[in-house]
């Protein structure tokens, strides 16, 4: 049966912004994971727009505690399920935004990876603290103007590169690490299913464009997501036990095509030096992961 024919485990009617990439990804994730899933969710956009009392978008058991502890809460759920003898039938997901994953939630996440809990950690990467008003996070890309890394006379926006979360995850020796994009829904759902078929800790980082925070028309979410992948700025990669087992091949579009529709990169577009730096980030990814399909 197609997804449209079955009842979604993520109900409509939540309060996400129009064109929110994260809400689409969250629906794809839980519908791929299925009803025998328990979710622990960090504080962030997803938590706020899906569970404003007295309504909840979740048709699976779901718990939100704090900003930084979904991973630890999930490991407690897993431990309790083992104690109850139910773990074999139930999947546990710990999900967070990029700040909740790469910044404030990093320690708890490292903890569950090191302890080898059977938990799928998902990072919905919208590349800033969007819920609190578009502040910079450890996964904000180079050059992006945010409210705490604004562009200005002496600033080209965020001066740091994205924290290499997949590499950090791999360094823990975990079973499965992948990136996905809301622009490639089937690939995303395949990765969720694959991750959940593997016992042990798993990490899936999903690129989810944010029309409000990135400053593009809400109708362009899919195109923006696809361009991030297509330019090489957001490589879709997949590791099993630390070995790279797959990459999504691209035709290598110019980064300008991706940056241009976004207000957060407006100051970059007419600055050849900065534009070149971002193109170099894409080029490095292309080289590192051999992203360009032969013949292109």
């Amino acid at each position: 049966m197609s997804e449209l024919q079955v009842k979604s485990l993520f109900a409509s009617g939540h309060t996400a912004c129009a064109g929110c990439g994260q809400s689409i990804a969250a629906r794809l994730v839980i519908n791929a994971a299925g009803s025998n899933t328990i979710i622990a969710n960090n504080t962030g956009c997803l938590e706020v727009f899906t569970t404003k009392y007295p309504e909840s978008a979740w048709r699976v058991p779901w718990v939100h505690s704090l900003f930084e502890n979904a991973a630890a809460v999930a490991s407690g759920i897993e431990a309790a399920l083992i104690f109850q003898g139910k773990k074999d039938k139930i999947s546990v997901i710990a999900q967070a935004g990029d700040g909740g994953t790469a910044d404030i939630g990093m320690q708890a996440l490292s903890g569950i990876w090191e302890r080898k809990h059977d938990v799928l950690a998902i990072c919905y990467d919208n590349e800033a603290y969007e819920n609190t008003g578009i502040q910079r996070s450890g996964l904000t890309p180079y050059g992006a103007s945010t409210t705490t890394s604004p562009s200005g006379a002496q600033s080209f926006g965020n001066p740091k590169l994205k924290k290499p979360m997949p590499e950090i995850a791999n360094a823990h020796g975990i079973a499965y690490v992948a990136t996905a994009s809301v622009g490639f829904p089937q690939d995303l759902q395949r990765k969720v299913k694959k991750a959940l078929s593997i016992k042990g800790p798993k990490y899936l980082q999903i690129h989810v464009p944010c029309p409000l925070g990135w400053g593009y028309p809400s109708s362009l979410t899919y195109q923006i997501a696809k361009l991030a992948v297509g330019t090489g700025l957001y490589p879709l990669i997949e590791y099993e036990n630390g070995m790279l087992i797959g990459v999504r091949k691209i035709s290598s579009k110019s980064v300008e095509e991706y940056l241009k529709p976004q207000r957060r990169f407006r100051h970059i577009i007419n600055n050849p030096d900065e534009l070149a730096k971002i193109q170099e980030i894409a080029n490095n990814n292309i080289k590192k992961y051999n992203l360009v399909a032969e013949g292109n």
Binding site: L66, N69, V73, A108
Partner: peptide, 24 residues
């Protein structure tokens, strides 16, 4: 019992929160 050594007291409290929420 599931005895779990964690990386901080914050996670110890969070872990037992998760266990308690699961009904144990």
């Amino acid at each position: 019992s599931q005895f779990i050594n964690v990386e901080s007291e914050h996670s110890a409290a969070s872990l037992v929160l998760g266990g308690s929420a699961t009904g144990v």
